[in-house]
Computed example of a mutant assay.
Amino acid sequence: MTTPIDELRTAAQTLMDLADIAREDLDTGDYWKPYNSATAWRDGLTNGMGGASGDLAAVFSPTTAHALATWLRAEAAIWDAVETVKAEYGPQGLKVTTPLSTHAQALAVARAINGGEQP
């Protein structure tokens, strides 16, 4: 059975893998050579796609993908810790003083990346 923690980790790994491949392509691909290395991703996608789609793709660079993956991994670790405490002490033994409100958003992002059902 796939758990929300599994979904978060799968999405994070997918993003990391794709970002690494994209970064390698950016560093070595002939397509990117006409562009300034600091702005190649943004400029190339904006130029290649154009419009709002190009603008959106342009801001979702390999660096952005890595940052999002790092967040998803952190959410998975927190979720895992909460589940461990609940398993050991039961739900009544778990006192959370900080709202875990980002879990639903992280899971929605993970499911969108994984192509699965949305919460």
Rank of each mutant, 00 (worst) to 15 (best):
M1L: 08
T3A: 07
P4Y: 10
I5G: 00
L8M: 11
T10S: 15
T10V: 13
A11L: 07
T14L: 14
T14H: 10
L18W: 03
L18N: 09
A19L: 01
A19D: 00
A19K: 01
D20F: 07
I21C: 06
L26W: 00
D27Q: 13
G29W: 00
D30R: 05
D30V: 09
W32I: 01
W32L: 00
Y35L: 04
N36E: 10
N36Q: 11
S37C: 03
T39P: 08
W41Q: 02
W41E: 05
G44R: 05
L45T: 02
G51K: 09
G51Q: 10
S53F: 06
S53A: 14
G54T: 12
G54R: 09
A58R: 05
V59M: 13
F60M: 10
P62H: 02
P62K: 00
T63S: 07
T64R: 01
H66I: 05
L68V: 15
A69M: 06
A69D: 03
T70R: 13
T70D: 08
W71P: 00
R73K: 14
E75V: 06
A77E: 13
I78A: 12
D80W: 01
A81C: 12
E83H: 07
E83K: 10
V85K: 10
Y89W: 14
Q92H: 15
G93K: 15
V96P: 01
T97Y: 14
L100V: 13
S101M: 01
S101N: 08
H103I: 11
H103C: 06
A104K: 14
A104R: 08
A106Y: 00
A106G: 02
L107I: 15
V109C: 02
R111E: 12
E117M: 10
Q118D: 04
Q118C: 01
